[in-house]
């Protein structure tokens, strides 16, 4: 989001940026990292997501035993007490299992479900969107109407029905979430393609005799990609919320599999006696969702070479 209104009459100023002096020989990666360093909010979000990523990759491997270990001494142990060791810093459940370990273990399912669902909707929605945008005609019309039909119907209800037809295993949850989000990617990509294909540089490529595949891959796809990445982060956050909602209602992931949403639901019965059982998994969902949102905001600006100066000038932070 532009963080400042351009001053009235500054149109004249921006034109004076002649050839920018000094070619930067940095690699693209270090360029991105130095940009990230300038925006502390985005940096913090990236850091948090990195921790979650580590948990997803090595968490179950390291913590699975601790998450399953019953410890009668620690039954319903309250949080913030270190006397039983740092594993119980967030408290323990009625069976004395460390909440921290369980959250770390559950991160894998939670994140993988969201990531897979988003990955499927990106690929399917992205390709369909590319087709619908570049080739107008009845295919495009049918795709759009279908997308409308899915979009105009509350996704939660669709998931509720579909998950009862097929049993609510991890795969089916992923598929349902993916299908319900495909229309978003389809619409976004189509709108972008419609706009980009009318741009002069695409016309220029056509006039040079470029074939459709070159135009799509060399000119249109790279322009759509940043939007897709940005949207993917947002959608990942949204899908996580929906998945945890489904699991909470008891129609998503089923025990013994565990996700953060399921943990909130489990803890609900102990609300009066052990509030932390529901509280911490919810905080985890919230923090990851926020981090994804913030990073997506930052990504949108950082991936656009024309917009990037906004980050480099750091006049106003984007929050």
């Amino acid at each position: 989001m532009p963080s400042s209104i351009p001053a009235s009459g500054t149109a004249d100023v921006t034109h004076t940026t002649q050839t920018v002096p000094g070619p930067k020989k940095n690699s693209a990666l270090s360029d991105i990292l130095s940009l990230l360093w300038r925006d502390k909010v985005a940096l913090l979000s990236a850091f948090l997501l990195l921790i979650v990523l580590v948990c997803v990759v090595v968490g179950p491997w390291l913590m699975a035993d601790k998450a399953r270990a019953l410890n009668l001494m620690a039954r319903n142990a309250p949080p913030f007490s270190l006397e039983k060791g740092w594993m119980f810093v967030l408290g323990a459940d009625a069976l004395g299992r460390s909440l921290l370990a369980r959250i770390i273990v559950a991160s894998q399912n939670t994140m993988l479900i969201a990531a897979s669902a988003v990955a499927i909707s990106i690929v399917v929605g992205g390709l369909l969107g590319l087709i619908a945008g570049y080739k107008e005609g009845w295919i495009s019309a049918v795709l759009l109407r279908l997308a409308d039909a899915i979009m105009s119907f509350p996704s939660m209800l669709l998931a509720v029905i579909v998950l009862f037809v097929f049993d609510p295993g991890v795969t089916n949850v992923i598929l349902v979430l993916a299908v319900s989000r495909i229309p978003i990617f389809l619409r976004t990509v189509r709108a972008e393609v419609l706009e980009i294909k009318e741009r002069m540089f695409v016309t220029a490529a056509r006039a040079m005799g470029a074939r459709t595949d070159r135009i799509l891959l060399q000119h249109i796809a790279p322009m759509v990609l940043p939007t897709l990445i940005n949207l993917a982060a947002l959608e990942m956050a949204f899908v996580m919320l929906v998945e945890s909602g489904l699991s909470f209602l008891g129609i998503g992931i089923q025990p013994p599999e565990v996700t953060w949403g399921l943990m909130v639901a489990d803890g609900r019965n102990y609300l009066g006696s052990a509030w932390w059982l529901s509280f911490w998994p919810g905080v985890a969902i919230m923090l990851v969702t926020m981090a994804l949102n913030l990073l997506s905001n930052w990504l949108r600006i950082a991936t656009d070479p024309v917009e990037r100066w906004r980050l480099q000038t750091t006049v106003g932070k984007n929050v």
Partner: peptide
Amino acid sequence: SFISLIGASTPNFWVAIVGVL
């Protein structure tokens, strides 16, 4: 911006039961 971000990021079922609590 910050508060609206929290609003958009918080799972509603969680807010519901924390609210009840």
